[in-house]
Amino acid sequence: MLKLKGVMPALVTPYDEKREIDFIALKAHMTNLRAARVSGWVPCGSSGEYNLMTDEERDSVLQFVKDFALPEETLIAGTNAPSTAGVIANTKRAKAMGYDTVLLAVPFYTKPTQAEIIRHFNAILDAVDVNIVLYSYPAKDGVEIEYEALDALADHPRIIGIKESSGSLQRAIGIATRYAGRIQLVSGSDDIALDFMLWGADSWICGPANCMAKAVCDLDRTYRAGDLVKAKEIMSRMWPAMNILESGKFVQKLKFGCELQGTPVGECRMPLGL
């Protein structure tokens, strides 16, 4: 099983003044993140506005990130779509580029039942030889990947982790204890990231890494080094910003934060506004 570790930015997608993908800005942005010693890359997730891009645009971003990445950096492609067939098609193209792992939420807008969720992910596993990191984000998707579905999927060798973004520490603890050694817990609730680490999350797919990469990487490395007191201090300093990000307009705030840090990535595409 691929071991997920460290901070992997859920990359924003830079746009120019015409709202076209700005690959020059993306290269500068990723170079800056690499300097903070991130462990990998997660393009075309929700922070990357994947649902506001064409398939061709998404493929161009995935290819750019694949070409930029170093051999030791983990690559996880966002290949979500509103239908199972669309996810399979996106995932096949990502696999052909060299992505062996994908990040998948439940299909948006559909609010599937747990039985439908199980059937959806099994169909993808049958169709494409990739690892899957599940993404449970009920506030955005309208449905949680519940224990019923996780129980059914946990022993598949290519279901390797779950990015848990419910914001519930109880849920994170439940996953960590119920699926220990079977599904890796991945931090996806940024304002309680240290709590996730305490309960066994060795990796963090992190939107705020776009605009505060050094701080989140320092937190991760400090905790791994065993200095919990200093880790709590770092988390305490970051928490107000994390809380602001979680209060709404998440992607817009990430992009504004990048501008404040000196690596502008443009504004979001409509319908997202300031």
Rank of each mutant, 00 (worst) to 15 (best):
T74I: 05
L4C: 01
T84W: 05
A77T: 01
I24F: 08
N80V: 04
V12T: 12
A35T: 10
I24V: 06
E72N: 13
D55P: 12
I76D: 05
T84Y: 01
G78K: 03
R37Q: 15
R58W: 03
V42I: 11
T54I: 14
V61H: 07
I21E: 01
C44A: 09
K27E: 15
K66I: 08
K5S: 15
L11E: 06
A89R: 12
T74E: 07
V61P: 09
V42D: 03
T31A: 14
D67Y: 05
S39W: 03
R37F: 10
E56P: 04
G6E: 01
P71M: 00
A89L: 11
V87F: 10
L75F: 06
R34G: 15
E17D: 12
E73M: 13
T31V: 04
E17M: 00
F68Q: 05
D16E: 00
G45Y: 09
V87R: 09
S60F: 04
T91S: 15
P9V: 10
G48M: 08
G48V: 06
D16W: 02
P82L: 03
T31F: 09
V65S: 05
S46L: 01
S83L: 14
L52D: 10
R93H: 14
I88V: 15
K95D: 13
E49A: 07
E56R: 15
T84F: 03
N51E: 11
A69D: 05
W41Y: 12
D55K: 15
G6Y: 02
T54E: 00
P71L: 10
N51P: 02
S46E: 02
S46F: 02
D22I: 08
A36M: 00
G6S: 04
N32G: 11
V38D: 03
F64T: 06
T84C: 12
E57N: 04
Y15W: 11
L33S: 01
P82C: 01
P9F: 05
S83T: 15
G6H: 03
E49V: 10
P71I: 09
A35Y: 01
G48H: 04
G6I: 01
K66W: 12
E20D: 13
Y15L: 14
E57S: 02
V42S: 07
C44S: 14
K5Q: 13
S39A: 15
S47N: 14
S47W: 02
S46W: 01
P71V: 10
